[in-house]
Design a binder for these strands. Sequence first.
DNA 1: GTCTATATTTAGATAGAC
DNA 2: GTCTATCTAAATATAGAC
Lengths: 239, 239
Amino acid sequence: MEKPDTLKRILDAAEQLFAREGYHGTSFRKVAEAAGISVSLTQYHFPTKDALYEAVFARRILVINHDRLAKLDKVEAEARQLKRPVDLEGALQAFVEPTVLLARDKKSGGAQYAQLIAQLTNDPNEYARAVSRKYTDPIARQTMRVLREAVPEMDSTALPWCYLFAVGAMISAISATGRVKLLSDGECDPDDVQRIVGLLVPFLSGGFERVAEITARGSKTPKAAKPRSTKEVSGGKTL
Amino acid sequence: MEKPDTLKRILDAAEQLFAREGYHGTSFRKVAEAAGISVSLTQYHFPTKDALYEAVFARRILVINHDRLAKLDKVEAEARQLKRPVDLEGALQAFVEPTVLLARDKKSGGAQYAQLIAQLTNDPNEYARAVSRKYTDPIARQTMRVLREAVPEMDSTALPWCYLFAVGAMISAISATGRVKLLSDGECDPDDVQRIVGLLVPFLSGGFERVAEITARGSKTPKAAKPRSTKEVSGGKTL
DNA sequence: GTCTATATTTAGATAGAC
DNA sequence: GTCTATCTAAATATAGAC
């Protein structure tokens, strides 16, 4: 008599733990306890931790990817219809909006999932890289394809960099570190979705356009690497 | 007879492990083994894992912060002397360059340290937040102060957001996930420091200027939150 | 400062009863 | 499907010898 929601309970518990404590900080014991079942039942459904991790990630990514692709397609179709280049802000909004909305969805666990993505993004480990390659690289490529139609002048080797800048900026915006509130002395509301999208999209479009300008083939001033003090190697930075 | 470099050996080993495996993935055992000493000696020098984590972070951050502050001061002084507003690209370069250079310094362990910062940036846990607050928030505030002089028109509640966008973009650029190479089919070189700075600085300055335009007090078109489909709540995104 | 030894807890994984 | 019981390895931590 299968309890119909055992899998869901496991995935919900694991999602929360992976998001908060990371891969290594999450154990079958903690997952089982949070799900209210035994350890071995958890392992019965997901034999290894990697399997559990992937299952947690895969559960939502399909929906998300579908949503993002639909929005990207719409932007692209509009451009085709109007016989104009893809609208940059539209493409960036299609890229950014599904994630930001998810990140502020406290009810259905979307916020947990978004934090898991935030952790995954800069995780160099193989369990994270494998999941990233499998589930997110295809959409990344499609996004870049559409973005290229929005900024056709941009050098093709600049686009992947700009895409990663955009990913990082978005992740930073949604990551649950409480930093915006702290650094703004309480003035900025980390849950104001409208505000985040309203700032992030223009920020990114300004960035893409600027890079497109300076890397355009046959651009007037290829001042791409305007050296200010690039040779003063000495240290690093913070954040 | 104190082996004069025991502390250094511990910190080097811990730095590498924390960077690659994160906080929970790093144990005294692994650190001790990598450093070639016993577990208890490691614990003699750093009684708790938190103490070790903070020590690893603190070791380099002082140098880094000093470097960044010096560059920021220089940019600010130039502006004062010329009686002009702070140069935006100059300020952003002062912000970005120390970290990017550090991240590509394979010899002295700087790359490991940069990866640790990348992991720390989106880590919601208290051990990470405490370190971030203590060592990086002061410089963040100083950086924002200088940036505000570069874009005085920008709404003051937009600046912290833009600062975090910039942090995220930079972190994404240096994080050792191998993604640029993958997504560019080998065309982009993740170790090309000149290229990274040469793209990142214009990208960020374009972003800051765009946001400054649309949030300027009394701006002609406060189209800040141009709604494209912001109400179509439904899903999330990837990265 | 540095080690061995040991205590205690928790980890992932299996075997087998129901 | 679900549990209890148990194994082995690894974790943090402490005590005490040199």
